[in-house]
Structure formats: structure tokens, C-alpha cells
Design a protein around this nucleic acid. Structure first.
Lengths: 330, 330
DNA sequence: ACTTGACATGCAACCGGTTGCATGGAAGTC
DNA sequence: GACTTCCATGCAACCGGTTGCATGTCAAGT
């Protein structure tokens, strides 16, 4: 049977070392204030007793607990794991821990999580938040906040500009001779979706290409698959999907309808999360999610240190990665 | 400019409501101890002041902070996100927050994370821990611990048995008339690989099927693709791949060689991480990672409540998920 | 030898809650 | 009407650290 050892306190160490509690505290936090001998004596006593500073108590008196929160809409979406990983790594470099929250794409859940996190993190990163600007502003009033893929004035944010990559995608399709294309859109309250749709329309109109939008509701395989009939009905010869998951769904749907890719139809995804591991390899727009995670946390930690909020707007450009789902129009 | 509102304390609420601090505390934690009118008065005052209980202070005096830690070796491995998600959901149901740690497959990093988490979580789930039994036992002495995919006596654990699913895969192929199959193996030092290979051989010999092993070196798309020539050279009519990524590579390689799946060749993956989002949909062995995450957290919360450690060994069997890459042998 | 100052350490208040025990008043009992 | 019982509330200690200020000591400065 395993039994649990319970907390050794600073007082016990103080007694053992024959000093005041404050000296023990200083031995751990500002050893330069004490004579070297005292420090070693205290350390030895602490070691012997197995003393470990109580994080909670420390947090209570200092107001700093060394945690930051990261809230994402859907961990299972392959876009996020690399972002989370990078965020965690960056936090770790400064000895911070990451609280992870998953909102299931649900603003209410997100609000709830922010509230619950608020008391125990020093700052928060909201990735692809589904909250209203208003709610985000309200939260930003409570604690340091950094956004990923939400563009709100006055709140530090890291934006992955999929616009640049999408523009390249449209140019790529234009060069291949496609004159009529479809944008398979994602969640309507997603900032990225808005951004991509806008970029596509702008690029297309500049290149004299007709774009139609087919909604896929959720960013998922199934909605992509279900959108296929609507896509084909437009008479387009190519499509850009909101993300790779959706694209993969479209790919499946097309295949079922005996439309070959890229022979009969060209398809481009976004976020480049599946491109390299599926067949045929998906042409897609790179995502930069790793950098986004790292930069967001780094920004947040900066804010915590300087206690200042700068109006940072950090933009990461994306590019088209050409693989095997695009070819010349028939 | 956004400015931050700082903490309203229980004392301020007490003053505003004209009661003692303890009453305010009780209004929030055990309202039944107070008269209804007092409670409403306090609540009204709290509301007006924007009071929110300080989580840290509460944790200090109660010793319960409502957090559990989850440590995984690699968030980016598609096996884990569903597990994490499920764990988070389960924790959430009991108003617990999840601390997420990523060890990069590094035991030292894992040890460090456990140490850092220890002070601020009530319990810990270690998924596919890379620590030695000894270290795990040591940690288990410090705080409640639940393991996923590690089998250590005396420590509650959740194990995913991929053997059962692999057995079903072989039976499925046998029923379809395949007499000669290939196992496309994964990393030689992987415990799962060993488990799967063993299960395949046992099942095959029982069913009078010939199995050949083709190594794929790494569990990846490319090594799967490169293994195709060797696979076809064996004259087999079906293959089981170490994991879905490898299977997807094999699928791509077969397609390039004009071998149609499942018409000419049947293919089964493992872990079911891609099956539902690729085309053709991959027949695969389920991974149960969602259940594993949920059960592990649930077990942990139980332990926290009952303050007891039971020697639980929860085994999750896997099953074959038949999709569209398997058919009758020619 | 006396002041001055630097330095090491202790004291005690504080962070913001929780909780066992004491108290006082109202209701219930005889 | 006096006595118990019970309930709502307050008091104060406590959780385990941190930190501003006071104190004591010892060496350097004159």
C-alpha cells in the first residue's frame, strides 16, 4: 500500500535550522540577503525534512502563481496540437505552467472556462476565440490577455494571415486556367473564415475569376463531404476549402461521385495539417500555428513582466504549399 | 486603454453587507447555515461590488484547489488529443481544471513537470509515461496518481489492449478469404508494436494464415509508402499496418502502383486516428483513447473523493472498425 | 573610543479566505 | 416565568508562505 507524506512547512524547517521562518523563506527566494552559512544550514535542514515550498501559499502572498491559461475551441482539430505544444514549451522556458481549456466551439463554455481560469492564472491566451468582441474586452479588463486569430484593437494579438496564402492559392488556380471556383466556408463566427473568404474574393475579382461560396457549417470532414453536391452544382472546376479537414471531406465526396482529383477537379485546403499524410497529397496553405503558439505565450509573459499592455498586432504570413490535388482546368 | 480592476475581498463585502467575514464565506460555501435573508443581502452586496472568491486563498485554507494534472509524451501525436479532450471534459463535469504537460518523450522533462505540478494539483494522470517504475512509484507516494498504458502493481491504471482488436482484424481477413497477409511493423522498440505483432502471429497461426512481416522502420507515411514493393513481393492479398499513418502511406504507394484498394488488396490500420477522415475510409483497430482519458480522470476524481487508493486495473479492449479498405480476396 | 553604516536576522502584519467554538436571542417545554 | 434547545452569526485562529521595518552586531571611518 502506498501512503502519502504530508506537507513539511516552513516553520518546521525554521525550527530544525534554528532560525526564523522569514529566514527560511529568504533562503529560498532571495538567498543573497542571508549569509552563505545560514543558507546552507537552512538548505540542509530543508533537504533532511523533505521540504517543498507550498505553491499555493506563495501564490497567495505574492499574487503570482506562475500559470498561464490557454483556451482553444477544439483540441482534436489538428491545427491546435502543434500550437499547444509550442505554447507549452515557451511557457516552460520561463517556468510557467499551462492550463489547457477546450471549449468545444461553444462560447458559453468558453466564458465559463475563462471565469474558472481567471483566479488561478496570471494571464490567458485565447486561440480562435468564439466569444464576442464585447466579452473578450470584458475579460481583458480582468486579466492580461493575448489573442490568436482574433483582431481586436487594444488587445495584443497574434494573427495568422491566411490571406496571403489564400491569395497565392487563387493565383495558382488562375495560372492553371480555372475561371470559376468555390470557397467551402467554415464556421460563420470564425475570424479565420471571414479572413479567408475576403481574401479569396479580393484575389478572384482581381484575376477575373468567379467565386461562389458553399457553406460547410462546421470545420469537419462530414460537412465537407456533404457540401460536394452544392459544389458541383455551381459548375466550378476548383475549390478552396476552409481547412484541410473540410477539404478531405470534399475529396471523399468527390471520389464517391467519381469526380477525379486533380484530373477533373482541383482542390486546395487550408492549415496544412493533413496534406502530407493523405493520398492524394493535398495542396494547402501553410498554417504557422507553432509560431503562433510560441509568440502568443512569449507576448503574454512579456506583459506579465512589464505589467504593461502594449497594443501589439503580430502578423504571421502564410504560403501555398503545392502538392497533388491541383492541376490545369479541363 | 484597458485598465484592470483589482480584487474585491471578502472583507469589503462583509462591510457592505454589515456582517462578519465568516458569514460572507458561508454565504458562498454553505448558504444553508445562514438565514435566507442574510444570504440574499450578502449576495446582493457581493454582486454590487463585483466580488469573486479568490481561488488561491480558498485553496490555501481548504487544501483543495480543484485541479488535476495530465501529462502526455507528445501532444502532436494524434493519439493524444482525443484523450486530452475527454479528460478535460470529464474533469469539467466535476468543476475541475486540467493542467496539461507535454514531455517531448523525455523522462527528465516528465519528472520536472510532475514536480512542478505537484504543488498545484490534487492528482495526476500520466499517459504513456516514459518514467521508470521506480520514479512513478515515488511520485505516487506524493500525490494521487493514475496511469494510462503503464502497468504497475498498486497504482491505478487504465490499459488499452490493442491485441484484441488486432485479433479481430485477422479474423476479419480470414473470413474474407485471405490466406496470406503482411504485417507492416512499426518502431522495433515500441511496446505497442511488439504487442500487435505478437497478437497477429498468434491469431494467424490459429486460423492457418501465413503472416510475413515487412518493417516500416518509422511509424510514418513515407515508410509505409516505401514498404509497398516489399509488401507486394510477398504475394499477400492483405496487410495490417502498425498504425494509421503507416497504412495511409501504404495506401498511397498502392495507388501509385495501380493496385486498387479494396478491390485488389485489403488494408487495415491501427489506432483509428485517420480512418474517418481519409478516402477511402480506412478499416482500422479502434484506440479507445477517448475512454482512456475519461476513465483515468474519473478514477482519479474518485480517489480524491474517497481519499483511498484502490488497486484498479482497468483494461479497455479494442475492436476492429470495418470501413472501406477491406474486401474479399480475389 | 565613538559614531556610522552595512549587513544579517527576527518580528509581526499581511495575502484572502475557512472553520471550530462561543454567544446571544428566539422559540419550545413544563 | 424559568429552563432548555436550537439556530444564526460573530470571533479569532489558522492555512503557509512573504516582506517592510526594527534590531542587534560588527567593522570601518575619524
Amino acid at each position: 500500500m502506498i501512503k502519502r507524506t504530508k506537507g513539511v512547512t516552513i516553520s518546521q524547517v525554521a525550527d530544525a535550522a534554528g532560525v526564523a521562518r522569514s529566514s527560511v523563506s529568504r533562503a529560498f527566494t532571495r538567498p543573497d540577503m542571508l549569509s552563505p552559512e545560514t543558507v546552507t544550514r537552512i538548505m540542509k535542514a530543508a533537504e533532511a525534512l523533505g521540504y517543498v515550498p507550498n505553491h499555493t501559499a506563495r501564490a497567495l502572498s505574492t499574487g503570482r502563481h506562475g500559470n498561464v491559461g490557454l483556451i482553444v475551441p477544439d483540441i482534436a482539430n489538428p491545427f491546435f496540437p502543434p500550437l499547444i505544444q509550442a505554447a507549452q514549451l515557451e511557457a516552460d522556458r520561463s517556468d510557467f505552467c499551462i492550463f489547457l481549456g477546450n471549449t468545444e466551439e461553444n462560447p458559453k463554455q468558453e466564458d465559463k472556462l475563462v471565469g474558472r481560469f481567471a483566479g488561478q492564472v496570471e494571464g490567458l491566451v485565447l486561440a480562435s476565440s468564439r466569444l464576442s468582441d464585447e466579452r473578450i474586452r470584458a475579460h481583458a479588463g480582468q486579466l492580461p490577455l493575448v489573442l490568436i486569430n482574433r483582431d481586436i484593437d487594444g488587445i495584443p494579438r497574434v494573427l495568422i494571415d491566411s490571406g496571403s496564402g489564400v491569395r497565392e492559392a487563387v493565383e495558382h488556380l488562375a495560372k492553371l486556367g480555372h475561371r470559376r471556383i468555390v470557397y467551402v466556408s467554415g464556421p460563420s463566427n470564425s475570424w479565420s473564415n471571414k479572413q479567408r473568404r475576403t481574401a479569396i474574393k479580393a484575389a478572384a475579382s482581381r484575376l477575373d475569376i468567379v467565386v461562389e461560396t458553399v457553406p460547410a457549417v462546421l470545420a469537419s470532414y462530414n460537412s465537407g463531404r456533404n457540401a460536394v453536391s452544392a459544389i458541383l452544382a455551381t459548375g466550378a472546376t476548383a475549390a478552396v476549402a476552409f481547412d484541410d479537414l473540410t477539404a478531405q471531406g470534399v475529396l471523399a465526396g468527390l471520389s464517391e461521385k467519381r469526380v477525379s482529383v486533380p484530373g477533373d477537379f482541383s482542390l486546395i485546403g487550408c492549415d496544412d495539417v493533413l496534406g502530407a499524410v493523405t493520398y492524394p497529397a493535398l495542396t494547402s496553405v501553410s498554417n504557422r500555428s507553432t509560431e503562433a503558439g510560441r509568440v502568443a505565450v512569449s507576448l503574454l509573459l512579456d506583459m506579465l513582466q512589464s505589467r504593461a499592455i502594449r497594443d501589439v498586432r503580430y502578423v504571421l504570413e502564410t504560403h501555398l504549399v503545392v502538392r497533388n490535388t491541383t492541376a490545369a482546368a479541363r
